[in-house]
């Protein structure tokens, strides 16, 4: 298996239904001399999964016979728009709601005093009758929702 395929198959430690490629954090895999250099970008500045991603990449590539090094890229900043269609389908299949388009702004970031409105639907029953419980979920990149149809709580991957 080539080095890109090995790196692309490594999964996110907190959302293991997503590969690093599907999450959009895998930016580049290239040979530099006898080494494979993998470039990843953090989702959030404090994402505690970065160290695990780095170790998992080196570990898997070394199992496949590659000496690997991991490089961090901060720019352009990760956006939830980079989550692939396959990744979005995997999120839904595992009971998480996929993000809508990330907000864009040309001037100052607008203050938002009302709960963020999203076209989220319940990943279990498909109902659009959902309510936000909290903008901050168990991982940095998710918000907490509850479906008022089937009453199940679920996580929504935030627009970022």
């Amino acid at each position: 298996m080539n080095a890109y395929a090995v790196a692309a198959a490594v999964t996110d430690p907190e959302m293991p239904m997503l590969t690093l490629e599907d999450l959009g954090v895998l930016r580049d895999v290239r040979a530099e001399g006898s080494e494979v250099v993998v470039t990843i970008t953090p989702t959030y500045s404090g994402c505690p999964a970065m160290a695990t991603m780095r170790d998992d990449l080196v570990h898997r590539l070394s199992e496949a016979g590659y000496a690997a090094r991991v490089r961090v890229s901060l720019t352009p900043a990760w956006s939830s728009d980079w989550i692939t269609e396959r990744g979005r389908a995997a999120l839904r299949a595992h009971g998480l709601s996929a993000p809508g388009p990330a907000p864009r702004h040309d001037g100052p970031v607008a203050l938002n005093l009302l709960p963020t409105r999203r076209d989220a639907t319940c990943p279990r029953c498909g109902s659009a009758q959902v309510e936000l419980t909290s903008e901050f979920g168990p991982t940095a990149c998710t918000a907490l929702y509850r479906c008022t149809g089937c009453l199940e709580p679920f996580e929504h991957v935030k627009e970022h």
């Binding site: 250099v37 470039t39 953090p42 970065m50 160290a51 780095r54 170790d55 080196v58 570990h59 070394s62 090094r69 991991v70 490089r71 961090v72 890229s73 901060l74």
Partner: peptide, 11 residues
């Protein structure tokens, strides 16, 4: 395989 965890590794 423990590399440093420098958040700017490679930057």
């Amino acid at each position: 395989i423990q590399q440093g965890e420098d958040p700017l590794a490679g930057v």
